[in-house]
């Protein structure tokens, strides 16, 4: 704020400063507004808090690095181990497959929840209640042991006669358990997204002669994505970590690979560190992907968040402008 505006605010009935003789003007007005330097408020408390945090961070890094029991050399050896790599690949693959199953089934369940038919609505509600209401670990174990319940799977159809033990491999049980469970959560996310779109949008699309399917695909869902994507990103990151549960049904994922190695070498801590590092790497990559996806789907709706590259450019150009002004 300039000095002129400040003086005006103090004296509401607009004192015609310019009409007064030079000698009677307040001292502040003798400096031209353009020449005034703005001094921002200093946040002493924040500076102290930041310093304390830096000290704590340094102490923690020091203890982790200097504690030989972390066995960083072992960590380094196994970080690029082939079986760890295979486990990591399976973890990423399983995450992708389960999220796709979850998302596809989730959209279907969400549309069913919004149906005009009470039986369809209730069926979707029951599905969500069951799969959200029981622990996913229990669901995994149940799918894994499905052969105990249904030794032969027929789907009630003549001619279908499948051996449950042969079909429900550990991997199939993992996909079923995690995917069907995820669908329950995804359906709630998609439903919230659909409901977040103003009803006027559906009316406008309908008045233009678009069918319900076209309205959903072309008008409602693209706008719902803005609401759907952030929690879906969280779900994906959550799913990546939840896949570690499949190690209990002998699916050779990242955690299982680490466990296999340390049951042989008796070095659990460094191998759990190896697994943690890889989980952290993949979740970080996913977070970056989420940022760009959110940006893509918020088109036309609000000011887009700048990408890191744009921020860097902005910082450079501001700096250049400032230093350019000082030198002139």
């Amino acid at each position: 704020m300039t000095g002129d505006a400040g003086a005006g605010a103090q004296a509401p009935p607009a004192p015609h400063v310019d009409d007064q003789p030079e000698s009677q003007r307040p001292a502040e007005l003798s400096v031209d507004a353009a020449e005034l330097t703005i001094v921002p408020q200093r946040h002493i408390g924040r500076w102290i808090a930041a310093a304390v945090l830096l000290v704590i961070a340094a102490l923690m890094v020091n203890s982790v690095v200097s504690n030989e029991r972390f066995q960083w050399d072992v960590v380094n050896t196994y970080l690029r181990d082939v079986s760890i790599g295979r486990g990591l690949w399976l973890t990423v693959w399983l995450t992708a497959v389960c999220m796709m199953v979850g998302a596809a089934l989730g959209v279907l369940l969400a549309v069913m929840r919004l149906s005009g038919n009470p039986v369809i609505r209730t069926a979707a509600f029951g599905y969500v209640a069951f799969f959200r209401g029981t622990p996913v670990l229990v669901q995994l174990l149940l799918w894994f042991n499905l052969a105990a319940l249904y030794p032969v799977i027929t789907f009630g159809l003549p001619g279908v006669n499948l051996d449950a033990n042969a079909i429900i491999t550990p991997l199939a049980a993992a996909i079923l358990g995690l995917g069907l469970n995820e669908a329950a959560y995804m359906s709630e996310i998609v439903r919230a997204g659909i409901l977040s779109v103003d009803h006027g949008q559906q009316e406008a699309a309908g008045a233009l002669g678009l069918t319900r399917g076209q309205t959903m695909r072309r008008v409602v869902l693209p706008q719902a994505m803005r609401v759907i994507i952030p929690p879906t990103g969280n779900e994906t990151i959550g799913m990546l970590k939840t896949t570690s549960l499949v190690s209990v049904i002998a699916v050779p994922d990242l955690l299982y690979a680490a466990q296999t190695i340390y049951s042989r070498t008796f070095q659990p801590i460094p191998l759990l560190v190896v697994a943690s590092i890889w989980y952290l790497v993949v979740t970080s990559v996913l977070s970056v992907g989420q940022f760009y996806l959110e940006r893509r789907f918020s088109r036309g709706n609000r000011t887009l968040a700048p990408t890191p590259l744009m921020r860097l450019r902005a910082a450079v150009s501001t700096h250049a402008a400032l230093s350019g002004r000082k030198s002139s």
Binding site: Q201, E203, A204, A207, L210, Q214, P222, Q223
Partner: peptide, 28 residues
Amino acid sequence: IGMVFQNFNLFPHMTVLDNLIEAPRRAL
């Protein structure tokens, strides 16, 4: 039958042109 609403109800995720050509393309 064309209809114009109090709150416009344009499709916010489409440009002006895409708003205009959406229904002629999909419905007609």
